[in-house]
Design a protein around this nucleic acid. Structure first.
Lengths: 125, 125
DNA sequence: CGCACATATTGACAGCTATCGATATTTCCG
DNA sequence: CGGAAATATCGATAGCTGTCAATATGTGCG
């Protein structure tokens, strides 16, 4: 079994248009759960807005009013999901956004809703 | 305070581009949490795929391998969030998709990710 | 009216996870 | 090497929520 639950194409079939199987629903739910957390949303937002598109943990802990272990935990969850990428330089760990997973999730929420378009997993450009 | 947590514009500022405040993050997280659940994803998917765009609860309980109270609970959560709309006809309750909340959530996941576009809350058509 | 059916509500409980303090690990610096 | 700084991991705990059984509410039918 896979310990690291990365968000890939298999997680994001169109929410509408075809009925989700139990497995698909499970996968997509797990992916969404990663973002369904205030601290993690703020982290993503902070990282994305930061200069050069990356932040080190120390900057993030300062802004979040949460303990360092907690921030580290959330960063791990986001990284395991593939939403953030970690790069260690010297003593510091820098995080930056990985655009694709967010796009895939967006895609999962996309179609049928307004009339069953078909975007699926193809068009991430 | 508001008991019913409906998904509206206030829940979905762009995830990136500006840094989410604690309140904004809380709101968006709560909205995402509604969908971050396998049973609810399947319900949305089932309703959307159903004939005429609506299902009654009895159809849904059959397909979900969950007790009727549980299904009813999930339907309530989805309805309170504004994702489903409930209409009672005779003894039956019919649920259908309300497209806008899903679109708003999609919008929240949209922009900056790839370079801070500005779609925000305007273009739902 | 009274029963049967469809759905909703209630109360209880188990499982998950966000959070923290303590500690381990890694890396630089002198 | 030794110590300090940055980050990660661990173990414990509290709060939330998905689930169910039991029951309530509503609605048509005879």
């Amino acid at each position: 079994m896979r310990l690291i639950q990365e968000i890939d194409q298999t997680c994001c079939p169109p929410l509408v248009g075809s009925v989700l199987t139990e497995t698909e629903a499970e996968r997509l739910a797990r992916a969404l759960r990663v973002l369904a957390e205030p601290a993690r949303l703020r982290l993503v937002s902070l990282v994305a807005a930061s200069d050069g598109g990356e932040s080190c943990v120390c900057d993030l802990t300062d802004r979040l009013d949460l303990g360092q272990p907690t921030v580290s935990h959330h960063l791990k969850v986001l990284t395991d999901a593939g939403i953030l990428r970690r790069e260690k330089r010297g003593r510091w760990a820098y995080y930056r956004i990985e655009p694709e997973p967010l796009e895939l999730l967006r895609g999962a929420l996309d179609p049928g809703t307004a009339g069953a378009r078909q975007s699926t997993e193809a068009g991430v450009t």
